[in-house]
Design a protein around this nucleic acid. Structure first.
Lengths: 187, 187
DNA sequence: TAAATAACTAAACGCTCGGTTAGTTATTGA
DNA sequence: TCAATAACTAACCGAGCGTTTAGTTATTTA
């Protein structure tokens, strides 16, 4: 055999993910990735193939981090109020010292143009659909409404998430909390 | 004196604005701007100074376009329902053939990182505050609520706009309309 | 009509981008 | 212990970036 890797891929990809999360895809350069991940370009390319590859893995890593919140939501027995708690969890998740970095998926959906890489587009769509399904399952249990109404409500919460994500980048914590309260006023 | 300009700055900046709107700041290159604006790099730089300058002027141009909707909202006597109409107007404004391009301001707020140009950040903040003030004025007239409640409601609509903007890039027209209806259910 | 001036064209600037590759170092098992 | 092998370093690649500049063309006015 031969020499061992001096880094663990799961560790360095998390660092890459944080860089993309904070700065977006285009603004994040290979140079920045080298510095943040603490490994050479060669190692990045032999592990992940391309900048796109690093990004795709970063989305997977992001998914895992967010899944902690999602799993808590899934386990919740509070119905719609569980979603409200999830929203509160999310603003803690997305915020930083002063302004937030939003949701990596939403940020990317807002950044990319119509000609963007299809794999990235696909990853975003899958992600969105998965979260929507979680909302649907909760709403089904919680209410006696028919499928159409449930799906509309799920879309409503999903789009609210998009707003919340963007908002963490611009608004104060108080404003975000107030927004959440307003969403659930009549739910 | 000397030779006349063969283009009107207001005309070419609108074309630039559309390019930024569709593709974002980073993805839009000077080469693309040359092609879309129909003028040479030299002319772009002599008129606008830099890529950043073109973008800053593009935001002004975007403001003017959106002001048509805002002015209609200001003139409306329907109170909160006027805001609802404005939301409907906005999704027409932001949508394209299949998916939408969102709001240039929201797109940019989502794209830029913490180290982005201060002028751009300032322009985004100003823009957001102006729209918020319009919401506040309408809510003041419409309701007897105190200032704090009014501001919270204005923030709520503002953040809903952010969500709507992102959503035009991913969701169908029906989903967007359904989202608007849900927002105004209890208003 | 000719000097002055500003807008044009197009080539080039230095730099950074994402990505590659030649050569070195460390670990392995025979 | 030593050949085989894989991970390392670092220099380098062509392309494209935003920006500048030298040289040409059109318009103005004295």
């Amino acid at each position: 055999m031969a020499r061992k890797k001096e880094y663990r891929e799961e560790e360095v990809i998390e660092k890459a993910m944080n860089l993309f999360w904070r700065n977006g895809y285009e603004t994040t350069s290979m140079q920045m990735l080298e510095k943040e991940m603490g490994i050479n370009k060669f190692s990045i390319y032999s592990s992940f193939g391309s900048k796109n590859g690093v990004f795709l893995e970063s989305i997977k890593c992001y998914k895992q981090k967010l899944n902690k919140l999602i799993n808590k939501l899934k386990a919740s027995e509070k119905g719609v109020l569980g979603i409200k708690e999830y929203f509160y969890d999310f603003i803690e998740f997305a915020r930083e010292t002063e302004f937030g970095k939003g949701c990596l998926v939403t940020n990317t959906a807002n950044e990319i143009g119509p000609d963007a890489d299809e794999k990235i587009k696909g990853a975003l769509t899958n992600f969105t659909n998965e979260v929507k399904q979680v909302f649907i399952n909760i709403l089904k249990e919680d209410t006696s409404k028919d499928d159409k109404i449930v799906e509309e409500q799920a879309d409503f919460f999903l789009i609210s998430m998009f707003g919340l994500s963007s908002a963490t980048r611009v608004f104060s914590k108080t404003q975000l909390e107030n927004y959440i309260e307003n969403i659930f006023l009549n739910k």
